[in-house]
Design a protein around this nucleic acid. Structure first.
Length: 424
RNA sequence: GGAGAGGUGGCAGAGUGGUCGAAUGCGCACGCUUGGAAAGCGUGUGUAGGGCAACCUACCGAGGGUUCGAAUCCCUCCCUCUCCGCCA
């Protein structure tokens, strides 16, 4: 949510910023709802003030006296009007809230212009993609793949996009998760294991609701949502709280399975481990002082990049252009790893600064030493990292002529062996 | 899931229809006192919205209702605690 005051005082600034995201938003409509809401609020407050004054007068009167009875009669009319006006106000308030929730976050000034993914800026590149395995194959074409990553039985048991990981497949997933979590802890992130079902208030605070409920799995009876990312429960940890300024920045990490309905994708994009309905991910999260959020964003990105460097995977960093930024982000970097078999980049991390957008929805604040008043924190998060695509890149890039896969050195102590062999 | 108790400001805890945004205590901040400190005394100390100044309004778990008037009465829901049941 945006600051309503900013919208009122600088609507043109908001208009221009949203234009950079190439989203269609009717600012004038929002402004007119805002004006209507304020006007109705004034009406109701004036009436309530009269009620209060009358109440104070009646206290001094003798109950049942003619003056008292006259006053009751007089205030009955006011009471009826208050009721009606309050109902109107409630209606406008709902519309006002909806209108405010429909406004996206404003992009930071350093975000490049652009409308499509092709216009994202390549921020940096690391590693040599030409020096990779000459025998590289798309991971799903590696002989024996189906034994360690059983999509057929997953489809039987649940549906497409819910694979079983079997034997060394499962072990490799676990090794990666442990590696990610150990690295995050070493970088100063406190590990948290959150609930993986969340309520509507939590999903609203992080920006999944309203409008994106179609991308989440929802439970039928209790109307809870399966988390699309640990960002949701983790960000909401401090919902409606005021933190001590000294406690900032707060750095935390969490592993959860992530659930995404992802309607509308098909073809090569969704083959193998490229895109799943359920996958494992470690998420890094920060709550920071507003003055530090862009410094913290660079550090966050570096924490994610370090994982790829240690896994010896070639990767590049994209700085997302305005049109490819998400609804809630002010600035975002994507980390893409090279998959030598598919000869394509796979997104494995997304590091974003949300500034106060989520914090305002979630009411996460800190008490300013300077003013003594509560101020909104800035929230940031980044994947560190998503397992299946990292796994895919390792399988493809490290495939050996004998059909085995070399395990990256950093991962060996978690996997237990230096090579993965597929069953015949 | 069943029975009971309860949810009030940073914490504890009063308040059962009207002058209650809410006593009191603790905590915290500032001041007085002191060589310094403690004690003592005094003052202050929630959040949000509107005007953006005085001021006004809202908030006593959430939502609805009764009433001229609700922290207080009624209904629904949520949560916590105790006991029982079930269970990894």
């Amino acid at each position: 949510m945006l600051d309503p005051k900013l919208l009122r005082e600088s609507p043109d600034l908001v208009r221009a910023a949203i234009q950079k995201k190439h989203l269609e938003v009717d600012i004038d409509a929002v402004l007119s709802v805002d004006a209507a809401w304020r006007s109705r609020l004034h009406d109701v407050e004036t009436l309530r003030s009269r009620q209060k004054a009358a109440n104070n007068e009646m206290v001094a009167l003798k109950k049942g006296s003619p003056e008292f009875i006259a006053k009751v009669g007089e205030m009955k009319a006011v009471s009826a009007e208050v009721k009606q006006r309050e109902a109107e106000l409630a209606e406008i308030e709902t519309a006002w809230r909806q209108a405010m929730l429909s406004l996206p976050n404003l992009p930071h000034s350093s975000v490049p212009e652009g409308r499509t993914p092709e216009q994202n800026a390549v921020f940096s590149s690391h590693g040599n993609i030409d020096a990779l395995s000459p025998v590289a194959k798309a991971h799903w074409e590696i002989p024996g793949f189906d034994h360690l990553f059983d999509f057929g039985r997953g489809a039987k048991v649940t549906g497409a996009g819910f694979p079983f990981y079997v034997g060394d497949g499962a072990r490799l997933v676990r090794a990666l998760l442990n590696f990610f979590l150990e690295e995050a802890a070493a970088a100063g992130y406190l590990e948290v294991s959150p609930p993986i079902l969340v309520n509507a208030a939590s999903a609203t605070a992080t920006g999944q609701l309203p409008d994106k409920e179609g991308q989440m799995y929802e439970t039928a009876v209790d109307h809870l949502y399966a988390v699309p990312t640990a960002e949701v429960p983790l960000t909401n940890f401090f919902r409606d709280e005021i933190l001590a300024e000294e406690s900032l920045p707060v750095h935390r990490c969490a592993y959860t399975p992530c659930f995404r309905r992802e309607a509308g994708s098909y073809g090569k994009d969704v083959r193998g481990l490229n895109r799943l309905h359920q996958f494992d991910k470690v998420e890094l999260l920060k709550w920071v002082h507003p003055s530090q959020s862009y410094v913290e964003l660079d550090l966050l990105r570096d924490d994610a990049e370090r994982l790829l460097r240690k896994l010896e995977l070639p990767y590049r960093v994209l700085l997302m252009c305005g049109g490819d930024l998400g609804f809630a982000q002010a600035k975002k970097y994507d980390l893409e790893v090279w998959a030598a078999g598919q000869k394509r980049w796979l997104e494995v991390s997304s590091c974003s600064n949300f500034e106060a957008f989520q914090a305002r929805r979630a009411q996460i604040r800190y008490r300013s030493r300077e003013t003594g008043k509560p101020e909104l924190v800035h929230t940031l998060n980044g994947s560190g990292l998503a397992v299946p695509r990292v796994l895919a890149a390792i399988l493809e890039n490290n495939l050996q002529p004998d059909g085995s896969v070399r395990i990256p050195t950093a991962l060996v102590r978690f996997f237990g062996r230096d090579h993965l062999r597929f069953p015949a």
